[in-house]
Every structure is written in C-alpha cells, then in structure tokens.
Design a protein around this nucleic acid. Structure first.
Lengths: 227, 227
DNA sequence: TCCCGGATTTAGACGGGTCTAACCCTAAAC
DNA sequence: GTTTAGGGTTAGACCCGTCTAAATCCGGGA
C-alpha cells in the first residue's frame, strides 16, 4: 500500500515530466512539493525500492510504467473531482484545484466510478487538461502549444489553462481567457509577455511569461483534440 | 492544527459518550479504533495537553467543550457526506459509512457548506442519525429508545438505525427495517433478540441483541422528532 | 483489611516523513 | 586538465502514531 505522500511524489514527477523525456531532478521535485532536497532524496530511495521510479544517482528520475500508472490514477481522481465540483457543486474553476488536492487520495474506486458516471465520462477537466481514462493508459500529448509560440496577429483558440493559482485563474476568467475561447494576439513582448484580446471581452489581457507558459492554444485549422 | 488521527479519537469518544454521562475508558476507545491500549493512553496525553479532553488517570476521559466541538464538526462532515452520497451519487445506505469515513477529514469548510446547501440543510442522515448544525451546538439526545426496550405486541416506528456494518444494513434494508418504517414487535427472547415484522415486508426479521441495540424507535404517540 | 485479577500506564522500540549540517559529485569555466 | 560553484546525497536528529513488554493501579472478594 502506498502512502498519500508517495502518491504526491509520483504525481509531482508525472506533472514535471509532462511533455518531455527529461529526467526530473531532485530540486525540481523539492520545489514542486515545497520540501527540502534531502527529503526528496530519501523518498526517491523508497520509490526506487518499490520499482516506481528509475533512478540515476545525481541525475534525476523518471517514472517506471508502474509509477506512471499510479500517477495517472491520482491525476484521474484530481481532474474528475475538479469537473464534478464545477459541474455539480457550483465551484468556480479557480477554486477547484485546492479542494481536489485535498480529496484525490481519499476516494474509493467506487466513488471514482460514480463521479465519472454522473459526469458522463468526461475527457477534459475545467482547465482543459485531459482526464486519464479508467484504463489508466497515458493520454495523448497535451493539445496545442503554449501561446507564447505564436506571433502578433495570430488568432487562436484556448485549449488548456494549466495554472493552479486561484488568483491567476480568476484574473484570466474575468478577462475571458478560458478553454474554448478565441483570442487574437496583439503583441508579444521580447521578454515573453503576451498581450491578447478575447472574443469574450473588450479589455485586452496581458500574460507574463510564467502565465503564458501555462496557456495552451490551437489554431482554427488544427482540429480541436477534445471535439 | 489537529491531525486526522486526533480527530478520529475525539469522534470515537463522542460516539461512545452518546447518551451517557459516563467517563469513557481507555479500552473502549482502543476497541472502537482497533488499536492497543498503550496507544490510546499516549494519544489521551496529547489530547489532554491541548485541552480537548478531561482526564482522570486510570478512570477514563470526557470531552471538553472544545473537544466536543471538534468531534461535532467531524460528525457533521460524516453525516452530510452520507446524505450527499445517497442523494446525489446513488449510493445505498449500507455503503455510505466507509466512504464518508474516508472523506470526513479532508473536506473544506466551503465544501461542507456547498454540500449542506445542495441537500437543503438536512437534519438527519440516511440512518436517521442527527446531523449537527453548522453552529456545532450539541444536538438533542437521539430520538426514541432502543427497540429492545419494548414488549411483544408493541407497534413502533423506526427512527434510527445506527449500525455501521454494511452486511447488517443490507440485511435490514432487505427486510424493510429502515428509518420511517412501522414495525410490529412479535417476540422478545430472554437473551435479548427481538423479532418483528415490518409494514414493508411479509417476512419477519430477527434482531440479535447487538443489532437491536442500534435500532431506535418511537411510538406512534411520540411525535417524530424529525418531522 | 488484604490480595488478586484485570485494566491502565510507563518504558522502550520502530517506521514514516521531515529537517539541518556536512560531505560529495557533476559539469561548466578556465 | 584543474578548479569550483551549485545541486545531490549522507548523517543524524525529531515528531507522530503505533507496537510489545513490564510495571502499576483499582476495585471486588475473602
């Protein structure tokens, strides 16, 4: 039986690995989970012993297939909960992350199934992130690319807003930056800040690099992968 | 901040205290939580230090007002969750206890409020047990009395079925023993077993003493305290 | 009143998860 | 090829919640 904490580490590694093939370094995990490096090292020892991570000392870790399956289970719980909370308990998308984090380790298989059923087996959560299926196969690479990859004048559709900070999310929602919305890119500053106007809002919105990095968009030509 | 485990102890003491003014003894708590007596002793030390229990060494504990408030918060969570799961996620009343136990420590105040709201601020859970209010004032004494207090021939209405064992609950539900149902008591055996017939079922049902103890009923004259 | 059995507490250990301090490895700069 | 800055690991400590074994207390029976 895995502890909640172990599950958190696996989930963190999974999230950090998202979209890359790089090994994840101790310090990245430490920053993600807000613990010290030695703490991470000792946890990685345990995860390695259980065959959940592949490790090269001093060089970071990757998840084994088994470790990835565990991570996907937790991510599935998390995103189903986010979807349920917005859909049935009137939560705002900016608020669901913290609540889902609290609950994701403590729901039964049965609960998971009932929630998925009540929602009609959704494939994306309120932020546009893919919900792993009940089979726990790794989902496709995330849709689209970061908005910072585009140039001034481009017209794109928001596919995913992967930020977790409620303040950032409220700010974005207020200005019409949500999955499914069309954006016109007005300016890309040299230091990475993107300014755009949403079809839902008069007021343009500026996304500092750290935020822009979490906003993934598709071009009209590109078929909506969740469609 | 209290740990989940501390909350479990406070809840256990609260449940054991239910309806009595007796001090709760170490061994009772140990049995309730399935741990050893020394474990309980050391936890009681901590709870006493924090002012959550009144203790007399070798003589057991009672909750302080503060301890009782914490316990009521957990009980409120538990029973709201039970009600929500049956009402909105299609759980059977025999299944909800375990799931609520898993979740009761991990929901936010906000979640609690939203669930209560979605249910219309219910005052009893699916077992007929009172749900403490948001003010966390101690609820009234439980409704009615144990069915074992009655004699052959009495006609009574089930107010509460406080058992937690899913098998017992399924058995009872199959034979029509649920809150709100009328029962005619057919026989009370000397060793405490009660046999009764439900208005919902042809087949009589026999309740061994341990089960009968958890079935509380009111007489038709007695006004339904939940009405 | 004394003793005894059963319950309670004390003593001491352990695994989990965390920390700080100290040591060590890696890779980049020279 | 050396040096060195900075991240990674080891060492050792702590608290939590748990256990077993041993000591202690309480209350009822003689």
């Amino acid at each position: 039986m895995l502890s909640d904490v172990m599950e958190d580490y696996l989930k963190a590694i999974y999230q950090l690995q998202r979209g890359t093939d790089e090994r994840i370094r101790t310090s990245e995990i430490a920053a993600e989970l807000d613990v010290t490096s030695p703490t991470v090292t000792s946890m990685l020892d345990k995860l390695e012993e259980r065959g959940l991570v592949d490790r090269e000392k001093y060089r970071g870790v990757t998840l084994t297939d088994e470790g990835e399956t565990v991570a996907l289970e937790i991510v599935r719980h998390h995103r189903l909960l986010e979807a349920y909370l917005t859909e049935h308990l009137d939560y705002d998308w900016s608020e669901v992350h913290a609540e889902a984090d609290r609950l994701e380790h403590h729901i039964s298989e049965d609960f998971e199934a009932r929630v998925a059923d009540a929602l009609g087996e959704p494939t994306v959560d309120p932020h546009g992130s893919p919900i792993p299926g009940a089979d726990l196969e790794p989902p496709e690479r995330p849709a689209g690319e970061a908005i910072s990859e585009f140039e001034e004048g481009a017209v794109v559709t928001v596919a995913e807003v992967a930020d977790r900070d409620p303040e950032v999310l409220s700010y974005l929602a207020d200005r019409g930056v949500e999955p499914g919305v069309e954006l016109e890119i007005l300016e890309v500053a040299p230091f990475g800040m993107v300014t755009a106007r949403s079809s839902e809002s008069e007021e343009p919105v500026s996304l500092p690099e750290t935020v822009a990095h979490h906003v993934r968009v598709v071009t009209p030509a590109e078929p909506d992968p969740q469609g």
